[in-house]
């Protein structure tokens, strides 16, 4: 049974032209780390808030553990949520912050100390229990927020961009810790982010959203390698998938699969490539240039490992896309199609 399931979930805010969330179907599996990924305004946070009960859906169903929860208060849904701002109670010590859900849900007072100690130990914040939130660093606040969510052992975790307020260095370690922690606890988690790196690194599956709709749901590999449409293709990857207009079909391929022709590997698609710019990124080199032949005028990126001898700016040479790496999209709808049949030229 899915821990969380939404059917046709729709939210229309008064006074706005299009729905913020438009017929979203999501199913999580037990113990899964599910990531809602999308640009700002894609409706991902609204979906999370409707699951939490902080926002009333305009239509559609939400089930938690198979039970319809539409109309139930957040309290009755017995879920835990970590807010982007962490929303710690500023006047309470860390201990009282973590103990608050226990008090609110009527857990006997005698059990509080042990439970708080357990949650604090998981995030290594035992030494901070007497402090107040304003005396903590960003990373420490985040741990307190996670501990407060964990302490009541909920069946579902909702996390709203919990890493976005941390600096870049801290974010990488926090991400790793979060993943380890979720694996250890095994609680089903719905995680909202606009950061594709977080989504790929954390998610068992990723739900890519745009303009209130789900564009694709799949494992990180699926959404990256087999994007369902041109939005997903370009939202994931940096630089994004190259999309080459070819009549009624759009041809897509990832920069890292676009490399100088090699006699040994014939490749699926061969084209002349004039290098206009080379960026050295350490491990890789990023080449930007113009295609020739039947794709004359279209531009593309190529990502080559630094240890491979790279063409120089101004060089024109034959590039190929590796076998099995070309994707086709309908030029009109942007949706994925199986072959390039019907393309002109």
């Amino acid at each position: 049974m899915p821990v969380i399931e939404t059917r046709g979930l729709t939210k229309r805010f008064p006074g706005s032209a299009r729905p913020a969330v438009d017929g979203v179907d999501i199913q999580s599996r037990d113990g899964e780390f599910l990531v809602l990924l999308g640009p700002s305004g894609s409706g991902k946070t609204t979906v999370l808030r409707m699951i939490a009960g902080l926002e009333e859906p305009t239509s559609g169903e939400i089930r938690i553990g198979g039970v319809l929860v539409n109309g139930l208060t957040p309290r009755e849904r017995r879920i835990a949520m970590v807010f982007q701002s962490y929303a710690l109670y500023p006047h309470l010590t860390v201990y009282k912050n973590i103990a608050f859900p226990l008090k609110a849900q009527g857990v006997p007072r005698s059990e509080h100390a042990a439970k708080v100690a357990w949650a604090a130990s998981i995030f290594g914040i035992e030494g901070l229990l007497d402090r107040r939130p304003r005396e903590l660093s960003g990373g420490e606040r985040q741990r307190v927020a996670l501990a407060r969510a964990l302490v009541r052992e909920p069946k579902l975790f909702l996390l709203d961009e919990p890493l976005s307020n941390l600096d870049a260095k801290l974010r990488a370690t926090a991400r790793e810790e979060l993943k380890k922690f979720q694996r250890r606890i095994g609680t089903t988690t719905v995680y909202v982010t606009h950061d594709q790196v977080e989504a790929m690194a954390l998610g068992n599956r990723v739900v890519v959203m745009d303009q209130g709709r789900v564009r694709q749901t799949g494992t990180p590999t699926e959404v990256y390698d087999d994007p369902a449409d041109t939005f997903v293709a370009t939202f994931l990857g940096s630089p994004p998938m190259n999309l080459i207009d070819d009549g009624r079909v759009t041809i897509g391929f990832r920069p890292e699969h676009f490399r100088p022709a090699d006699a040994a590997a014939p490749g699926a698609l061969r084209t002349p490539f004039r290098v206009d710019n080379v960026e050295y990124l350490g491990a890789d080199r990023l080449l930007h240039g113009e295609l020739g032949g039947r794709f004359a005028g279209r531009t593309a990126f190529s990502r080559l490992a630094s240890h491979v001898a790279a063409p120089r700016v101004g060089d024109t040479l034959d590039f190929v896309v590796e076998e099995g790496r070309v994707r086709f999209f309908d030029a009109a709808s942007g949706e994925r199609r199986e072959s390039g049949a019907g393309a002109t030229g």
Partner: peptide, 25 residues
């Protein structure tokens, strides 16, 4: 707005949110 919302998710009702979160703040 996050603070009373967090309290609601944490399971606090109106009175508890009011007397233990809002008023002290």
């Amino acid at each position: 707005r996050d603070i009373p919302e967090a309290a609601a998710v944490d399971g606090a009702g109106f009175w508890r949110t009011h007397f233990q979160i809002t008023l002290p703040m």
